[in-house]
Simulated scan of single mutants.
Amino acid sequence: MTTPAPTPPCFVLIPGAAADSWCWHLLAAELRARGHDVVPVDLPCDDESAGLSEYADAVIAAIGDRTDLAVVAHSFGGFTAPIVCDRVPVDLLVLLAGQIPTPGEKPEDWWTSTGYLEARREQDARDGRAEDDLASLFTNDLPPDLAAEAFRHGRQQAGRPFGEPWPLAAWPEVHTRVLLHRDDRFLPVGFARRLARERLGIEPDEMPGDHLGMLGHPTELADRLEAYWAGRPQARPR
């Protein structure tokens, strides 16, 4: 008797603040070429009436009736993704250079409550980075033309979600992995590693790339995501 082939995952890709689904286009193409369903999500980030709950609603609407879900959240998407995982069955959550909240924490307070600001100042001093040089902060590993295109795809970011307490009482019961980019200047890797250990008890993995590593290293990132999916524990009951 032959063993049935495993069901391929659906990768749900959540962008960070002031970003749209374009930031995932190279990774999405790579995953689709490997036979995966991919859902790059556009959040209502420019809508002043939309908060974290509405962001999660947008993700869930994009998912529709899909199952076998692997949610990948970039940067500020780390505040939205666990809410999604609390509302629908998700088999794998990957925080890609993601912010990690705690219950009741407002995103606007995260920068100070985590020690991020001090870590960034130390990182900037080591790199000799000028405060207004956004290219060296976000796209220091990208070719200039791709970096320029990334900035052209930037969106307005409304302030409402930053003033809302993170609504969950605890991290959802979903297999979670944390993946960092070792050349990330926006989210210093040493800081992010400590935060993952302290808040989730997770030892993060690292790969090359700046804060937009999904653009600079889509093939390696796809490899990592497939490995995470293959290594996940039994999916939670639906």
Score class of each variant (00 low, 15 high):
residue 47 D to H: 12
residue 68 D to N: 15
residue 88 V to I: 15
residue 53 S to V: 10
residue 104 G to N: 12
residue 89 P to K: 07
residue 109 D to F: 01
residue 41 V to I: 10
residue 29 A to Y: 05
residue 140 N to R: 06
residue 233 P to Y: 11
residue 218 P to R: 07
residue 145 D to L: 02
residue 28 A to S: 15
residue 91 D to C: 02
residue 204 P to C: 07
residue 150 A to L: 14
residue 202 I to M: 05
residue 87 R to E: 02
residue 154 G to W: 06
residue 76 F to I: 07
residue 179 L to H: 04
residue 211 H to V: 03
residue 23 C to A: 09
residue 88 V to A: 05
residue 54 E to Y: 04
residue 8 P to S: 05
residue 32 R to T: 08
residue 1 M to H: 11
residue 131 E to D: 15
residue 191 F to I: 08
residue 216 G to L: 10
residue 77 G to A: 04
residue 16 G to H: 09
residue 59 V to D: 09
residue 161 P to N: 07
residue 204 P to I: 05
residue 48 E to F: 01
residue 223 D to M: 01
residue 134 L to E: 14
residue 226 E to S: 08
residue 220 E to S: 04
residue 42 D to M: 08
residue 178 V to C: 12
residue 68 D to M: 03
residue 208 P to Q: 01
residue 162 F to T: 05
residue 169 A to M: 05
residue 66 R to V: 06
residue 174 V to C: 11
residue 51 G to Y: 02
residue 205 D to R: 05
residue 2 T to G: 08
residue 114 T to G: 09
residue 99 Q to I: 12
residue 139 T to L: 02
residue 184 D to P: 02
residue 126 R to K: 15
residue 168 L to F: 11
residue 30 E to K: 00
residue 166 W to E: 07
residue 103 P to C: 02
residue 85 C to S: 11
residue 158 A to Q: 04
residue 150 A to R: 13
residue 222 A to Y: 01
residue 141 D to V: 00
residue 108 E to D: 13
residue 176 T to I: 10
residue 221 L to M: 02
residue 155 R to F: 03
residue 115 G to R: 08
residue 165 P to A: 11
residue 51 G to V: 05
residue 58 A to I: 02
residue 170 A to V: 10
residue 102 T to S: 12
residue 83 I to N: 10
residue 199 R to I: 00
residue 131 E to W: 03
residue 206 E to G: 03
residue 74 H to P: 00
residue 126 R to S: 13
residue 12 V to Q: 03
residue 33 A to D: 14
residue 174 V to F: 11
residue 99 Q to M: 14
residue 144 P to Y: 04
residue 62 A to R: 07
residue 230 A to W: 03
residue 213 G to I: 00
residue 234 Q to F: 00
residue 93 L to V: 03
residue 22 W to G: 08
residue 189 V to P: 04
residue 221 L to Y: 00
residue 3 T to P: 06
residue 72 V to N: 07
residue 5 A to R: 11
residue 17 A to C: 09
residue 135 A to I: 03
residue 73 A to K: 09
residue 99 Q to N: 13
residue 96 L to P: 04
residue 211 H to F: 06
residue 219 T to P: 01
residue 27 L to H: 00
residue 64 G to C: 11
residue 184 D to T: 01
residue 81 A to E: 10
residue 155 R to M: 15
residue 203 E to H: 08
residue 20 D to E: 10
residue 77 G to D: 01
residue 64 G to K: 10
residue 237 P to H: 09
residue 224 R to I: 01
residue 137 L to I: 04
residue 126 R to W: 04
residue 27 L to K: 04
residue 152 R to K: 15
residue 54 E to W: 03
residue 61 A to K: 13
residue 214 M to D: 00
residue 106 K to P: 04
residue 53 S to M: 13
